[in-house]
Amino acid sequence: MIKTADLCDDFADQLKVCTLELKSYGGKKRFSGPISTVKVFEDNVLVKQALETIPTGHVLVVDGGGSRNCALLGDRLGAIAEERQLSGIIIYGCVRDTADLAEQNIGVMAIGSNPLKSIKKGEGESNTLVQFGDVDWKPGHYVYADEDGIVIAENELPVKN
């Protein structure tokens, strides 16, 4: 299993470390993969569209503007990600249905939880550079996440299992 601490030991010069501490909500505590992105604010329509269309194995990075006013992901969207075998979801925003997310075989990290659902206007951007946690999240770059944190590399790293 890939550990971010080991990646930092071996590839520190190739990594950016996310300085925002996110909480793990999914059943998988460690996950990695190519980055796909959406940028939204209190609206999860594009989150659902991305989960339904991005390639298997990808990590969806959601820039929700850090809002704690509502959730951008719950058990239904988590089930879509699990069914499509996505690697994980990282949200600069909140989730809900946390007990159910913990049972799903998907990595989910977010700043917190809120039981209120989001609005449904479909506003935002997809597949674009997003920025939070002192890092640039670029589509196609690689993210590695575990209990110690999150690191980003421009390319997939040649890791030993």
Rank of each mutant, 00 (worst) to 15 (best):
Asp6Ser: 14
Leu7Glu: 03
Phe11Leu: 08
Ala12Tyr: 09
Asp13Trp: 13
Gln14Met: 15
Leu15Tyr: 02
Val17His: 03
Lys23Gly: 06
Lys23Ile: 09
Ser24Ala: 15
Ser24Thr: 03
Tyr25Arg: 12
Phe31Met: 12
Ser32Gly: 09
Gly33Pro: 03
Lys39Phe: 10
Phe41Arg: 05
Val45Phe: 03
Ala50Glu: 14
Leu51Asn: 04
Thr53Met: 04
Ile54Ser: 10
Ile54Thr: 05
Pro55Ile: 03
Gly57Glu: 04
His58Arg: 05
Val62Arg: 10
Gly64Asn: 09
Gly65His: 11
Gly66Leu: 12
Ser67Glu: 15
Ser67Met: 12
Ser67Tyr: 00
Arg68Ala: 15
Arg68Leu: 12
Ala71Pro: 01
Gly74Val: 00
Ile80Pro: 07
Ile80Ala: 09
Ala81Trp: 00
Ala81Lys: 01
Arg84Val: 02
Gly88Asn: 10
Ile89Leu: 13
Ile90His: 12
Ile91Asn: 10
Tyr92Trp: 14
Arg96Met: 09
Asp97Met: 02
Ala102His: 01
Glu103Lys: 01
Asn105Tyr: 01
Gly107Ser: 14
Ser113Val: 00
Leu116Cys: 11
Leu116Tyr: 03
Lys117His: 04
Lys117Ala: 08
Ile119Asn: 06
Ile119Val: 04
Gly122Leu: 10
Gly124Tyr: 02
Gly124Trp: 04
Ser126Glu: 11
Ser126Pro: 00
Asn127His: 08
Thr128Leu: 12
Leu129Ser: 05
Val130Glu: 13
Gly133Ser: 13
Asp134Thr: 10
Lys138Ile: 09
Pro139Leu: 15
Pro139Val: 03
Gly140Leu: 14
Val143Gln: 09
Tyr144Val: 01
Tyr144Arg: 08
